[in-house]
Nucleic acid binder design. Sequence first.
DNA 1: CTACTCTTGGAACATTGTTCGTGTCAACGG
DNA 2: CCGTTGACACGAACAATGTTCCAAGAGTAG
Lengths: 232, 232
Amino acid sequence: MPVDPRERRAARHAQPAAVPAQQKRRKEPITVDRITDAALEVVATQGYDALTMRSVAAVLDTGPASLYAHVVNKADIDELIIGRLCSQLVLPKPDPASWQEQIRHVCAQARDQFLKYPGISRAALAMAATDLDVLRVNEGMLAILLAGRIGPQTAAWAIDALWLYVCAYALEHSLVPQADDWVVSREELVHRFAALPADQFPQTRRYAFQLTAGMGHERFDFTLNLMIGNLR
Amino acid sequence: MPVDPRERRAARHAQPAAVPAQQKRRKEPITVDRITDAALEVVATQGYDALTMRSVAAVLDTGPASLYAHVVNKADIDELIIGRLCSQLVLPKPDPASWQEQIRHVCAQARDQFLKYPGISRAALAMAATDLDVLRVNEGMLAILLAGRIGPQTAAWAIDALWLYVCAYALEHSLVPQADDWVVSREELVHRFAALPADQFPQTRRYAFQLTAGMGHERFDFTLNLMIGNLR
DNA sequence: CTACTCTTGGAACATTGTTCGTGTCAACGG
DNA sequence: CCGTTGACACGAACAATGTTCCAAGAGTAG
């Protein structure tokens, strides 16, 4: 009974209501869940740029108009996939002794999920923070920090900063390896930095190696430590 | 002599070459600079979403095709406006005694510039970091941190993290006040948090006030302190 | 069986980025 | 002084996108 998509989206941002089980009308009716699955499949295989109404509809073997009975917008699909992604994060039971590890672990999970779906963090950055699945992650991180004796205001702002950074980091990572004839490898980058005019870019020339380092997740870990290590 | 736009863009990412002065052919010939001006005007008045080839061309009183003689892409225009924006940041002469203040000041400048052009940080996040104007800011921040006796690797990664955060913060700020019938004010947000089910969202309910606080730039300052305070 | 509601999807529309080909103007060679 | 040339400008068009309209189908209640 997918009535009005607007109501359905609003429900995801308000308190959840008890929804009765719904029976399927056809063998494979189009559902919000199936749309979400299809969208994630598209993003996982072809990247976020390929996520269009038509590509999602094509996976479901129909036209784009059919989606609008279940979905408000394309932005709504963005919310759905981010919500699904967030609902797959496992949130540990807060342990005051290891709160730093726990926060790090949650962030690493989010990072890995984002990287599994290239470019999807753009949707996460553009999304309202009142989605229930996102709020669930927020609640989990808040509980961890509070258990670690972090003050409420500090905890709230720290979570915001961490989430913002995770999204931005994933976005940056998904942009680098697209390598259209024009984006470059690390050696090329170092070489380019070294070729800069010495009078304007002395430090960049000197530390070209350090500037391009951290291709694994060392930069990520570094920044998380920067933020977490200073919380108390 | 705007010959091939591709070469011109490449020049902005390589070492700058001495370019001879160019004479104008008409009274108001279309220039890369004028395109940049027009684009920034559009973003400042109507936001980044309104930045289209046609809107830029309309400001210059012409059609979209005319832009492609000076510009490779729309992504190229993005680079141009971010470059212009970065070139307007003033970078202080590094002072070992006040490196923290200096870094904070540079970041605050970037933040304010981003906020002056709503949504423009999306372009900054999507851009390659080899643009000369962006590199200039990088060089300036690097010099400040190095003067503050921060190790090169730490400094390089810290700059990356700071820049990423500034962009993400500006992006978030430019999304909130768009308020399409559906995005909400703070009171509404607090009320909504308080109405969440108590069993699933105890902390969110309890600290709804703190979670929605920091509408000024307190969140920004908080995060910057978090990152800067832990560098040594 | 009929009437009604909800779902489906083909076609179409507006808006985007981008390209083609032609017109047009300024400078230069004779 | 005039014709050539070459770069610039730009109207028109194309493909792809998000979105809406409307008609037809499927299922259910009376």
